[in-house]
Design a protein around this nucleic acid. Structure first.
Lengths: 343, 343
DNA sequence: TTCTCTACTGTGAACGCTCACAGAAGCATG
DNA sequence: CATGCTTCTGTGAGCGTTCACAGTAGAGAA
């Protein structure tokens, strides 16, 4: 147990070793490590060479102990676990954030809060200062963890506009309403006049906004809003399937459907197929997200692309800025209509 | 910047504060924190009360600095990113590991190594000792990162038997061969005699083993192995679709297909449907994984359940044991046949 | 009583780093 | 030649913990 255990690792070089190797003091090495201000080019070079020779890597624990920063951030998901399993958008977002953070050399701690116990544990962990900030995915309203973190003054950036939190919390979101408008306009431009909708959950901002966009365009086109054409969903595939069935029963004359997520749209496609409706000939179907599911389905889905790359990049940028002392910010990014086979 | 910045957080209580509050010394508090051996019940109680009163949470950085442990582990995914986006199994595994680690109060760092640069950065990060061990998902052979970590003596547990790494690396895997045998036996028991297969990638142990199980049962049943009935896949949905098309072209008399993953099976279902074959009447289809995709497809897939809960739990258990000094171990877990609509 | 053993407690040092401060050197200005 | 300024460098202290060690108190044995 002392010295090197079987197959053990040698004691890694410290800033001291580098200093000795470079013929300078600890302070100088530290300055080089932290931006190199007030360091002569000669010393700069000597230190860098010594770092390369020794294979030195900074000990983040020692650094954190004194700076009070942890130099790591948390990715907190408080969605119910089913959505996490089912929805590839989370993976895309997660990957984007990981990459964006990697560029800043900041590790990402994954925190999945399903049960209440987990929530409490994670909240304690975060408020104890073990992460400098939190990327939050929690679209439903009234999330107690989010509120607790906000109250504790933890830098926070939400994905999508959070409902119920004060306006003081940063968020990055796609322009849901505008995307919905684009899609419904597109469906109308195909000559469809009985355009239905399967909504997202209406306790989420995305769900509300996409429905609002639909209503606006229907009204602008001089069409009457028909309640029978709008059925509720919860973003899950199953709810899309059920929604389409209900839609067909309530309003069999429907000739197009705007579905508030690709995952639900998959369910809609399945239900339409079962009912013998051809897509897009009989019913045109438009999704939302441009998730991998949109390409995997057949026919491939026309959909609204959410700029996930930019969303993740912006979330990280805003969070790091906030950690650096800047004020909270809201960023809304444009969406894009992607035409494929289903319309 | 000194004292409390605007809206800032107060300096959290230290072990010192707790000691003073409890009327004992730092050492005693530390002992309570680390298991409570050689501490009188009275002191024990006083310390716990003081911790509760002060809201003390241990400073992990200070602890890590002296112990040399980071008390965190990495979840490293070196799969190509497409699979990560597409395959819900990763999410299930990730969630399982997160939960299992949470029970030990160990945070999980997510590391996604797509490009070569990312690989190098992550390898350096890990070998620098910033995590105590690594949960590895990298099913393809010849993974340079994995080999590097093994060589550096980093505790490592792979998900699935790693090809090409020395036998010194721990792994946890489902019994792929046995699962395949069960499925093919099941298909034969339905009276099918022209049983095809879409394999997984044959540079992965899972791919190899599932094919081996198929061959064994075909042979045991006194049937002849027919090359035309076996087509290669790579676990992706698209490859399942292509595989089924090829299978129908090569051996139109096929009356059952064992597909090496549920995701591919979704593709197979789509291709069969397009070709006008009814499932299961004309062709029975069996998948592998019991991923969420199996329930989402229609008809719902008969499949082989991989015990993901136990896999993740065991991975964490083995890894922690190894960090604690135990020798590497291999764990193979039984699978289970789940009958649904597709057979 | 005296000694030994066990159960428990306190104290200094150290982990590797950053930060504030004190100084040194070079150069221009009075 | 003193003075100030700028640029650079080294040093000591300290971040919050654990660990090894030294010690104390009480119980039981000699």
């Amino acid at each position: 147990m002392t010295m090197n255990a079987a197959g053990g690792r040698r004691r890694p070089p410290t800033i001291h070793d580098v200093a000795r190797e470079a013929g300078v003091s600890r302070g100088t090495v530290s300055r080089v490590l932290n931006g190199g201000h007030y360091v002569s080019p000669a010393a700069q070079e000597a230190v860098n060479a010594a770092i390369r020779r020794t294979g030195y890597v900074v000990n983040r624990h020692a650094r954190s102990l004194i700076t009070g920063r942890s130099d790591s951030i948390g990715f907190l998901l408080t969605e119910p676990q089913e959505r996490f399993f089912e929805d590839p958008n989370f993976n895309v977002l997660l990957r984007g954030c990981t990459q964006a953070l990697a560029a800043h050399d900041v590790p990402l701690l994954l925190m999945l809060a399903g049960t209440g116990d987990e929530r409490r544990r994670i909240a304690r962990y975060i408020t104890a200062g073990h992460v400098d900030g939190v990327l939050l995915v929690s679209s439903h309203s009234g999330d107690p963890v989010a509120e607790q973190l906000r109250a504790a003054g933890v830098p926070l950036v939400a994905c999508g506009k959070p409902i119920g939190l004060g306006s003081k919390v940063s968020y990055v979101a796609a322009d849901d309403r505008d995307g919905a408008r684009d899609m419904v306009r597109h469906l109308l431009s195909l000559g469809r006049r009985r355009v239905g909708m399967v909504t997202g959950p209406l306790d989420t901002p995305g769900g509300v906004e996409r429905l609002a966009g639909y209503r606006e365009v229907i009204a602008d086109a001089g069409l009457e809003f028909d309640e029978r054409l709008v059925v509720p969903g919860d973003y899950s595939r199953a709810s899309g399937e059920a929604g389409a069935e209900r839609l067909l029963a309530q309003a069999p004359e429907v000739d197009a459907v705007f579905v508030a997520s690709d995952l639900m749209a998959q369910g809609v496609l399945a239900a339409l197929q079962r009912a013998g409706r051809r897509v897009p000939q009989d019913v045109a179907v438009g999704g939302f997200d441009d998730s991998p599911a949109a390409l995997a389905s057949s026919p491939q889905l026309t959909t609204i692309r959410q700029p996930w790359d930019r969303i993740s990049t912006e979330m990280v940028r805003v969070l790091l800025a906030q950690i650096g002392g800047e004020a909270p910010a809201a960023v809304i990014l444009p969406t894009e209509l992607v035409k494929r086979e289903s319309t």
